[in-house]
Amino acid sequence: MPFKKAMTSPMGQGSSMPEIDCQETKRHVHEFLHNELTTDEMQEITNHLANCDSCEADYDFEVVFNQVIVNACDEAPPQELADRILGKIRQIQTGNHGNFDI
């Protein structure tokens, strides 16, 4: 999805170059963090973040938020489950008399 370019410069920045604005930067936070943007788009956002504390703080928050979600879902599986699955697989393998049914 192409960026909507605004002639405004990022907050606190004196540049007159057309750059993506804060709204556009914030809108793409998930795509940025999940590597769904092109290299050029990533670069534009990186440039904006380097000069905009507000957007940078938003991005930082999303990074922490994602990590918190990942950590919350990271409950160790019981070793017994892996053993059970491997046992079943080997049972199936034995039943195949040494070759897959291809």
């Binding site: 990271d74 160790a76 892996a82 699955i85 491997l86 697989i89 080997r90 393998q93 070759n99 897959f100």
Partner: peptide, 19 residues
């Protein structure tokens, strides 16, 4: 590919995804 190869391949690739 004999069964043991496929089994090993499956285990190596798929089992780490179990958690």
């Amino acid at each position: 590919k004999k069964t043991y190869d496929l089994t090993r391949e499956f285990e190596e690739q798929a089992m780490p995804l179990m958690p």
